[in-house]
């Protein structure tokens, strides 16, 4: 069974030869695999794709997460982005000062509007480079996350009480952006989409706010995009209080982070949706020993492997500072303890 067959057998509800291993390796970690800094790959999109492909080949996991350039995704709506050294890219200027600015957003009308300026080049490059037996996941922000990006996270979070209608209107305005980017990624040939909705986490907003402001937009975009490609819904940090809601979005896979008890998640929604997770990216992969990584993988397998419907992953993006040996240990332990 190759990686692609393994991945799709899990999505089809079948038991593969072993649990697929698809850690969240993205532009924050991968550049160092080819000896580059993140800011170099920020400026050079193909550098980022090369780094992701090199990391996939080096560590031997089952799928790669393809993104537009590090700065391109926020820039879809016109937000300028900067990155220093190996830091994460930061939006340096937000676009929404108030309701009157919503109409000024440069919402892409369709997928063709996303492809301008070479934004999709790293995704195309990656789809061609990794070959037919591998899985390529295209990553896109949710409407809620786009809304937070264009408003600025601090102001966005205060809007929940100051002006909740602004939150609602902004999220609604950003729905076409997620749809356009998602469709553009699918048109490049990715196998599935990861819709990132990190700010909808119960570590950020209450479950009630999630249900009122983030969930309806998730349902809408997953409803449209899910018919074109399977959707992985990523909500990092604590998503346990909203796991039932996430399972009702129509997503094929829920990507959950380390604060969620994997056994409890499996018991709650594991019969209805595939779970992907949830080794602690910062504490275990980033700072733990090789033994810590192996122990975490063994626990994850004991919690979620039985009956299928499980993909081993880090709970969130692997940090730039993570030892490369820890990623090797994750993949090896995943292959060893993930056999059916």
């Amino acid at each position: 069974m190759n990686s692609r067959e393994r991945f799709f057998s899990v999505l089809a509800g079948e038991i593969p030869d072993r649990v697929p291993v698809i850690p969240v390796v993205d532009g924050y970690f991968a550049p160092k695999i080819i000896g580059r800094d993140n800011d170099e790959c920020f400026l050079d999109r193909i550098c980022q794709a090369e780094a992701l492909a090199a990391s996939l080949a080096r560590f031997g996991y089952d799928g790669v997460i393809a993104e537009m350039g590090l700065g391109d995704e926020p820039n879809v709506l016109g937000c300028p982005v900067e990155v220093e050294g190996n830091d994460v890219p930061l939006v340096v200027e937000t676009l929404i000062g108030g309701r009157e600015d919503i109409g000024k957003l440069k919402i892409p009308a369709d997928s063709s509007a996303v492809a301008t300026g070479g934004k999709l080049e790293p995704v195309r490059w990656l789809v061609e480079a990794v070959g037919a037996g591998q899985v390529v996941l295209g990553s896109v922000r949710s409407p809620f996350e786009y809304a937070a990006t264009v408003r600025g996270l601090y102001d966005f979070m205060t809007d929940f009480y100051r002006d909740p209608e602004l939150v609602r209107d902004l999220v609604t305005a950003c729905i076409p952006a997620t749809l356009a980017v998602g469709k553009a990624l699918i048109e490049t040939g990715v196998d599935a989409l990861v819709i990132k909705d990190s700010f909808a986490s119960s570590s950020m907003i209450s479950p009630d706010h999630y249900r009122e402001f983030a969930w309806p937009a998730e349902v809408q975009v997953i409803g449209e995009l899910g018919g074109l490609a399977p959707v992985v819904l990523h909500i990092c940090r604590n998503s346990m209080p909203i796991l039932e809601d996430m399972a009702k979005t129509g997503a094929a896979v829920l990507e959950i982070d380390s604060p969620v008890d994997l056994a409890a998640a499996k018991a709650a929604v594991g019969s209805r949706v595939v779970l992907k997770g949830n080794i602690d990216a910062a504490a275990v992969i980033g700072k733990g020993s090789l033994d810590d990584v192996e122990a975490a993988v063994r626990y994850a397998m004991s919690a979620a492997k039985a009956g299928g419907g499980f993909i081993l992953s880090s709970g969130d993006s692997i940090p730039n500072t993570a030892p490369e040996n820890n990623l090797t240990a994750l993949v090896e332990a995943g292959k060893k303890y993930g056999k059916y």
Binding site: Y154, M157, T158, F160, Y161, S202, S203, M204, I205, H209
Partner: peptide
Amino acid sequence: TGEYFIPEMLRSAE
């Protein structure tokens, strides 16, 4: 304890 979230904390900050 999960009773407050970021918006509630920011509301108190205001």
